[in-house]
């Protein structure tokens, strides 16, 4: 069936459309599939603020490197390590002797901390709705085992507020590929409501090639039929109601607060922070409000919001490359600039 969908996407000859994916994993999957080059030029796929590393404010990175240089052990996912801060990246801190460790599963940290009680561990807990409930299970276990040497530096963000911010600011997007694994947790409802409120369609989409094609085709159909709201093209994993237990866990530990998005600024109530009663597990996440550019020419902000394409940035592939990134979009392999650079 996807063969027919792909033909439809190649042959599309209606009005010019701008479709935005707001998940970094979609950005990476689209680049890897090579789909952008074979579908009709009238369908433009643009990337939104869906890479947690890319939207993390500079003060967060600075705080992490400061803690690292202060002798704390920083535990993080891979991409975070190379993001530049005003005093360098974690990578550079590591080269200078700091203890920075990379893990796949946050649960590995529990064992690490239990085995080494004299060492202070700071976990760089970034992410959207998909990852936040994972941290709650980690906290459950840390509390139950009485582990005292782990704290979280959080930069946790919610997808809907930033999408609404884009819609308010007018990014000219005709429809969204809704993030498949965020939807696993949130369910269809938030996207339905936002879609109705702003009169745009959302297509919940998976990540394998056939699922991507299906989602894009579905979104195209929704647009042509003038539909708003949401349709689920990834029902094998996304239940209509989402994962209720996961959302309850989020509510147990976290509360909403203002969050600072790199290049976009403060979006009210778009972040999640550990509640007061758990503040002993926090490493100062609420104070991180500053965000500065390291190069005034950097256009990450416009790129993250779909107003500009990476190639239009004056630094792109000249002063700014994956080997010497000026902005976060060039760091993460899910960042739009990195992806565009790789596929030049």
């Amino acid at each position: 069936m996807t063969g027919r969908f792909l033909e439809d996407l190649k042959n599309y000859d209606g009005r010019q459309l701008k479709l935005m994916e707001v998940c970094g994993s979609h950005t990476a999957a689209i680049a890897r599939s090579g789909i952008r080059e074979i579908i009709s030029p009238k369908i433009r796929l643009i990337s939104g603020p869906g890479c947690p590393v890319c939207v993390t404010a500079s003060s967060y990175i600075d705080r992490l490197t400061e803690l690292a240089r202060d002798g704390k052990t920083i535990v993080t996912f891979g991409d975070m390590i190379r993001v530049p801060g005003s005093t360098g990246s974690l990578y550079e801190a590591k080269a200078g002797g700091a203890d920075v460790r990379m893990i796949y599963s946050p649960f590995d940290l529990i064992r690490m901390a239990a085995d080494d009680p004299g060492r202070d561990f700071i976990f760089a807990a970034v992410g959207f709705e998909t990852t936040i409930p994972v941290y709650t299970l980690m906290l459950d276990e840390i509390r139950e085992k009485g582990i005292k040497n782990v704290r979280l530096l959080t930069a946790l963000k919610c997808m809907i507020p930033v999408i609404e911010k884009l819609l308010c600011d007018g990014s000219g997007t005709d429809g969204f590929l809704a993030p498949g694994h965020v939807s696993v947790i949130t369910g269809e409802k938030p996207f339905f409501e936002t879609g109705k409120k702003y009169g745009v369609p959302f297509a919940i989409t998976g990540f394998e090639t056939d699922k991507l094609i299906t989602g894009i085709w579905g979104l195209l159909k929704m647009i042509s039929r003038g539909e708003t709201g949401v349709r689920n093209f990834y029902p094998s994993a996304v239940k209509r109601e989402g994962n209720i237990k996961a959302r309850q866990k989020i509510e147990e530990y976290f509360e909403n607060g203002n969050a600072y998005w790199r290049g976009i600024g403060c979006i009210p109530d778009s972040g999640l922070y550990l509640k007061k009663e758990y503040s002993g597990y926090d490493a100062g996440s609420r104070d991180l409000v500053k965000d500065e550019k390291f190069d005034v020419m950097c256009c990450c902000d416009k790129i993250l919001t779909g107003k500009m394409e990476p190639v239009q940035c004056p630094l792109f592939s000249k002063a700014c490359t994956p080997l010497s990134p000026k902005g976060a979009c060039m760091v993460s392999s899910e960042g739009s600039c990195y992806v565009h650079y790789s596929a030049r």
Partner: peptide, 15 residues
């Protein structure tokens, strides 16, 4: 040439 027939340019690994 990707599984779906798309064309993807491969670069040397960065970093």
């Amino acid at each position: 040439r990707t599984a779906m027939g798309g064309m993807r340019r491969l670069e040397a690994m960065m970093g």
